[in-house]
Write a protein that binds this DNA or RNA. Structure first.
Length: 289
DNA sequence: CAAGAATCCTGAATGC
DNA sequence: TGCATTCAGGATTCTT
């Protein structure tokens, strides 16, 4: 599942293609991708990419922002979310078409960018007028966990007043941008915090550990070029290796790498949680330091 | 407004 | 072998 490290790898791989030739044609499948306010009318709007030249590729949380330029016009932006199973690829226009291809952007140098997404949880949107940062969903995102200034103090402030459990708080993109279930569970293991701990029970020292563990987990994910469980690939088709480095995610019933205790997996809400019972003990009605 | 549940989707894995 | 069921989960919408 693409989370921040996977999206960052896609960003870096996309940059390496140095796409600069103008868009000659756009093809969009009939099938709907992500729906909702932020993505509505995207099918028609994406056609307006014609004539624009691609430039930088930025990332915010799990969103990719491909910048486009055109003479004497303000910057435009193609917003991409990979959802659960999405990936982008750059290839020559005569390459065989994969199933579940939903967007093809043809460039003047005979190359093509494709967005493929079997489960269709991903989303695509083009804004011919820039300022994408100021509009939903980008404007609603919490701080970037890899930025300087992302501290336990900031995280605690973002979560202030929440009565939810820490696992759910960290999954909330308005609190912090880019974490998904995999990296949240890895971070909480690293921090020694039970995923079901009420956020309101955490002391400053615990918030600090969680913030540090979160950035650490994400950085290691990037170092290992992302987690490839099934679908994830970067824009060159390269898979990651971080799935081999995971300490808890997907490892319920296995022995903890550190203490040998049997990792405990259970359903929290509609998602799987995993923890080490020895290193992430249950705390009830007490402060967690 | 906040929190939790339901929703969207397909392919892989599992069960009988 | 084959068919039906379960599971995976990000963000949004709906319900309480």
């Amino acid at each position: 599942m693409p989370e921040l490290p996977e999206v960052e790898m896609v960003r870096r791989s996309l940059r390496r293609f140095r796409l600069r030739a103008p868009v000659t044609r756009v093809w969009r499948s009939r099938l709907a991708l992500r729906t909702g306010e932020a993505w509505s009318r995207s099918k028609e709007r994406v056609q307006r990419l014609k004539g624009w030249r691609p430039g930088e590729v930025d990332r915010r949380g799990k969103y990719l922002m491909m910048r486009f330029h055109r003479e004497e016009m303000a910057e435009s932006c193609l917003l991409l979310h990979l959802g659960m199973s999405g990936h982008v690829e750059v290839c020559h226009a005569n390459e065989a078409l994969e199933d579940h291809t939903h967007l093809r952007i043809f460039f003047d140098d005979d190359r093509e960018l494709r967005f493929v997404d079997p489960r269709r949880f991903g989303g695509v949107r083009f804004d011919a007028r820039g300022r994408i940062e100021g509009s939903h969903p980008i404007s609603s995102l919490g701080p970037e966990p890899l930025d300087r200034g992302f501290t336990g103090l900031l995280l605690a402030a973002q979560a202030k007043g929440s009565r939810r459990v820490i696992r759910d708080v960290l999954l909330d993109q308005r609190v912090v941008a880019g974490l998904g279930n995999i990296y949240v569970l890895e971070a909480l293991y690293e921090a020694g915090i039970h995923p079901a701990t009420k956020a309101s029970r955490l002391r400053a020292s615990a918030w600090e550990r969680i913030a540090t563990a979160s950035t650490g987990a994400l950085r290691r994910g990037i170092e290992n070029k992302g987690t490839t469980l099934q679908d994830y690939r970067d824009a060159s088709g390269a898979t990651g290796t971080h799935q081999h480095a995971l300490r808890v995610y997907g490892r319920g019933g296995d022995a903890c790498d550190r203490c040998g205790a049997t990792l405990d997996a259970w359903m929290m809400g509609n998602r799987t949680a995993v923890r080490c019972p020895a290193e992430q003990p249950v705390v009830r009605g007490r402060w967690v330091s």
